[in-house]
Write a protein that binds this DNA or RNA. Structure first.
Lengths: 343, 343
DNA sequence: CTGAAAGCGCTTACAG
DNA sequence: CTGAAAGCGCTTACAG
């Protein structure tokens, strides 16, 4: 009794265990009648293959590790991840692959995660929220584990990744501010060691340059991708350049912080200062006024990550794949959009 | 070559495979000297036990399924889950147990998830965001799988759960509004089929009754735990009772929606209407003004869920355990708190 | 305290 | 197209 085994299925169907196994695994070399009787037995007994036994011989785990490593805790407030996870989960589930979630906040946890991942317990790894010099992808690769990074990978790493078009999105945001007639456009940037932040900053500069605006370092201030950082950066910017009339914040969270500073300083948004964020997160709709932002589909990113990873696992090739997903600027009140801009 | 096996460890240490296994599993019946030489071999070879092989014989997976089932997609914007996941992940990781994440949105996915979970692939299951009549916990239990529910379980289900003190939190919120001198206190409720929503509504009524206020159904309106629902509910309430001066929303998301209605209607918050939400989510700090809310520690909930589940798995008893975690009212500007209420 | 041996449930060359 | 047999890496009574 208990859980039925392949052996019992085979007996019930009057075939050998080998043949039953072939049916379960969809081998084409099985007679149609034999196949059917095995399938009937499977249905009748409610047979489910034992993963452990299968793994033991196939040397595959049919599981993928998803690592969210963020020692600073910075990212954890971000609903962003849930969406990516959903995309990953959907793509993996339809292929009968387990999603093993590994979150590490402390260095201790990170070490344990690394030991686990290199222990051969997963067939591949999806990595998130890396910093510029994170050795994890290279380390995993050196153990022969297929890896794909969500977002920009550490500089110089030869690793596959799927990223949103940070550059294109940021350029669109800044160009939009220019189109609105803004001439003193500041930016609040992410941390220097996070590639996405750097890319968005470079795109900001490029968009201004393309519009013939001279580069002014006084208009750039770091906000560390936090709300408090955004609030503070806005104060600094306002102190340095009181005539700012446009702000591109590299994340919605920082934009929300900037808004409260502007509010406190008596600046009207968007009349006095137009603000655009990045992420089009849930926050964008709850700020006052609603925040223009650059949208990226996190769910699509999740699916794409799985697709790239499975290719690497199946092909067992070290080919580096890079996928860049398009972004879209959503204009709301904070930069002159219509008042009831639902979305 | 490749990954070292127990056999190789044993050979290197000059003992039998059985003894090596005992050392790996911390059996006390091993001579101190033998133990040490095995440990040396393990370190030298970088041995890591093969989970599949172990599972096959122990009949344990050393993995726990975490199910987020939300066909409506309602909950997915909620950063809340990430925090719970962190708590679960931390508690599980320190015990070397895998966190297998299962998200299901469509009925199809839900069915697949159920098949997976009953297939003996996990040692136990943590369930979230159940509706009042969800048969999943009972179904899993009938397969002999230990289950614990995060939040209130479906009515009448004999299943262990860990929940925040929704009742106490809601009572505190309403009492606070009363203490502020509010006399026309409305509530925006969650959906009727979600226990947490119902509990918060009942607590609202009880707190008013305790204060000697007569029950007025006109002051209650459903908001479905969504922002849009909150916005609409506030319109309805204002239409029915223009003299409302306090609102208890059963979630921050609905409170945020209510705030925009109040804003559009020209009501000042908190001067004209004081508002309190529930969850103390990331939203509470980004609304204008910042939102008073009932805080619950989601990370603690995660740890507690693991603790209860592991007890059930180890004990193999059908004992039903109920854990209720305390909540705390955080007062911010939306109900008369100080202007710069950081937190 | 230690070892020889059986067995967990499956897949997969190898024959036929 | 099908079956007999070996073997994946581990744990655990059972002896001693």
């Amino acid at each position: 009794m208990g859980v039925p085994t392949l052996e019992e299925v085979a007996r019930a169907a009057g075939v050998s265990r080998a043949t039953a196994s072939r049916v379960v695994n969809g081998s084409p070399t099985v007679g149609i009648d034999v196949r059917q009787s095995v399938e009937r037995a499977i249905a009748q007994l409610g047979y489910v293959p034992n993963r452990a036994a299968r793994s033991l011989v196939t040397r595959r785990n049919d599981s993928v590790g998803v690592v969210i490593a963020e020692p600073t805790g910075r990212i954890f407030g971000d609903p962003f991840f849930l969406e990516v996870l959903r995309g990953i989960s959907a793509a993996l589930g339809s292929r009968q692959i387990q999603l093993v979630l590994v979150m590490s906040q402390s260095l201790d946890e990170e070490r344990r995660a690394e030991r686990y991942l290199t222990g051969g317990h997963v067939d591949g790894v999806i990595l998130f929220s890396l910093h510029g010099d994170d050795p994890l992808p290279a380390h995993l690769q050196s153990h022969g584990i297929p890896v794909v990074v969500g977002g920009e990978p550490p500089r110089g790493a030869r690793v596959s990744y799927v990223d949103n078009d940070n550059h294109g999105g940021a350029v669109a945001a800044v160009r939009h501010l220019i189109d609105q007639g803004r001439t003193q456009i500041a930016t609040i940037t992410g941390p220097w060691d996070m590639p996405a932040g750097v890319t968005r900053l470079l795109a900001y500069r490029e968009a201004l340059r393309a519009a013939g605006v001279a580069h002014d370092p006084d208009l750039e201030e770091g906000g560390g991708f936090t709300r408090e950082g955004g609030r503070h950066a806005m104060e600094v910017l306002l102190g340095r350049c009181p005539d700012i009339d446009g702000v591109f914040a590299a994340s919605d969270l920082m934009a929300a912080g900037a808004l409260s500073t502007l509010h406190a300083a008596g600046r009207r948004v968007p009349e006095d200062v137009a603000v655009v964020g990045f992420d089009d997160s849930i926050l964008a709709l709850s700020t006052q006024p609603p925040l223009s932002s650059v949208r990226q589909s996190m769910e699509v990113m999740g699916r794409e990550l799985v697709s790239v990873l499975l290719q690497a696992i199946d092909a067992r090739d070290p080919l580096v794949r890079r996928v860049v997903l398009g972004t879209e600027l959503i204009v709301r009140q904070s930069s002159g959009g219509p008042p009831t801009g639902k979305s």
